[in-house]
Design a binder for these strands. Structure first.
Lengths: 249, 249
DNA sequence: AAGCGACAACTTGCATACAAGTATGCAATC
DNA sequence: GATTGCATACTTGTATGCAAGTTGTCGCTT
């Protein structure tokens, strides 16, 4: 029960959301693990209200599942949900990259290159966290270039599901280099204003996730929601810590 | 300050969310109008906590804007946001309809026809609310047929933005018949398993929104967020009701 | 020993009180 | 008359207490 220090002068709920989201995406909180509002509140050094707000938001993002009067768990990997997230992201980003290739200005091309330079350094430093931030920045920049900056929010929500699977499936950060290479290919095509090649490169980039779910299903089946099993939450609390259930006073 | 009766045995926040969302989409709560957690709580006969939860959720859906320590307003129509919602919805639904045409089973074809029969009656009855529900049901069914049922949630969020503009722009429900006709064309193509025709019909269906924003901009400019104006919330409270600001006791 | 009932501890949902910040109207002043 | 300072009532953010429901364990009964 480690207490995390927060900046009291800034919004507690936002900070807590960013933190928990990162913990879930990076696997520090594992699928199926039980969490609760009071325990998380004391852990973060805040009250239940902002924690509750964060839980609701994470539920909307598909990262936790709340069972009223029972408990809350980190959402297990649902292959169907991942498939659909992949569908949403690929569909939007492939069309986005086409527009970005057609509409991007040379200023925006420079911004793209800057991000890639930053990413190159982060790959070398094995900084997974920083790389994922830069990854988001790059894809957001592409949405801006396509003239649909708001659609990035939709893409980001879908991307979170996929990033989580990738992180759980591949603990070794060797995939950073591969993604960086794909980014370079995409950026080249965009800067060359070659719509067709950009779309093809983006498709390759997107499809590289496919195998991760299967790998995860094999190496750690407990994290994956069985297709027929509707949901038996009580069976998914293996990480119940110092519980005091049943102990008479 | 009318008090709304809630079913106390069911989730208060969910009911309140459905209600407010409908009020916003149908224009009962107009863009720019100020709302507050306490006043809405007393109006709905519940406490601030579930109301606050609803406000946060509506903010995530882009239907309200929360300014801390200042107030909350029904989100003005942001042309850029509408454009991007249109982009997201069109991109996803056109690809979805193609898959639905290829993959739909005859059982699902029957379900599609059933929805259309229901819609026909609702058009005749001028039941806008019921029609919009059936509209959602139809588009959700298409997502299911395409094998991506989860993506409906994304489409629905974008669709809300567009439905709101349509409702504000066209108070006369004559557009129901037009939409119904477009639905019939789409369904025909899907049942005929004609992917290309289905996609074309869906594109037509989607593009019919475009003119609505411009019409709204002309007929009621106050509802539309000016492009250069970053956001002056205090100026957007023309509907401040029986305020007691400044009255000494 | 096996089955069953009661209870304790936990969960989230809701209500309410307090805290911090902001805008508005009034009043005093220049 | 215009401006500045201040009091007041509003806003959302946070903390906490209570209520309703579920689960698992203990202990009694059979």
């Amino acid at each position: 029960m480690q207490v995390v220090a927060f900046d009291r002068s800034r919004n507690a709920a936002q900070q807590a959301h960013a933190l928990l989201r990162e913990w879930i995406l990076t696997g520090k909180l594992r699928p199926g693990e039980g969490i609760s509002e009071p325990s998380m509140a004391t852990m973060l050094g805040i009250s239940r209200t902002p924690v509750r707000e964060v839980f609701k938001r994470l539920e909307a993002e598909g990262l936790v599942e709340i069972y009223p009067q029972i408990g809350t768990i980190i959402a297990p990997i649902d292959p169907n949900k991942v498939r659909d997230a992949q569908f949403v992201r690929e569909t939007l980003e492939v069309r986005t990259i086409g527009l970005a290739a057609l509409l991007g200005s040379s200023d925006q091309h420079r911004a793209l290159k800057d991000i890639l330079v930053r990413q190159k350094a982060l790959v070398k430093a094995r900084d997974v966290h920083g790389f994922m931030d830069a990854d988001d920045a790059l894809h957001e920049q592409l949405s801006v270039m396509a003239g649909h900056s708001f659609s990035w929010q939709v893409i980001a929500a879908a991307k979170a599901q996929l990033d989580r699977v990738r992180h759980l499936s591949l603990s070794d950060p060797s995939w950073l280099a591969m993604i960086y290479d794909e980014h370079c290919t995409i950026a080249e095509a965009v800067i060359a204003r070659n719509e067709k090649r950009a779309r093809a490169a983006m498709e390759v980039h997107q499809r590289s996730i496919f195998s991760a779910v299967e790998r995860l299903t094999q190496q750690d089946p407990l994290l994956v929601k069985a297709v027929e099993q509707a949901g038996v939450p009580s069976l998914l609390f293996p990480a119940a810590k110092e519980t005091k259930r049943g102990k008479r006073s």
